[in-house]
Amino acid sequence: MTTQNNISEEIKKEIEEIYQHFPQKSAACIEGLKVIQKHHRWVSDEAVKELAQILEMSPDAIDSVATFYSLIFRKPVGRHVILVCDSVSCWMMDYEKIAGYLKNKLSIDFGETTKDDRFTLLTIPCLGTCDRAPAMMVDEDLHRDLTTDKIDEILKNYE
């Protein structure tokens, strides 16, 4: 697992390209965090400090943004991130059963990563597919009308 994810020249260039489009550098803060996460899967303290230098902000100002947004990860995550919708429509359509099954199968709770670094399990409020509840997203793939059998099949595709 990567514990240091410094900002490479490549990442720096990508971020510099983004802030050209805004009236002030700090406006690229969220985009900058996204670029770092795209390359490293998460954002380390070191990366926050380096981004702060690039955008001429304080590390605290960067972190106040990074920690506000639920999909910026400030802790390492596994190779695949599972986001289970726990919002009202999914909750009514057996979310608890799905969530319990996943926790049991992966032997982790929400907010945790499997020992082999394969999966991180998180909840997400609403995936906007309420007519096909219950739903989850693995990386960028949406899976709907979930059943426990389906989950077994789905997870096989993520090594």
Partner: peptide, 11 residues
């Protein structure tokens, strides 16, 4: 942004 729980029309 469509994040209102139960809403999926803009999608």
């Amino acid at each position: 942004d469509e994040m209102e729980p139960g809403s999926f029309k803009d999608r």
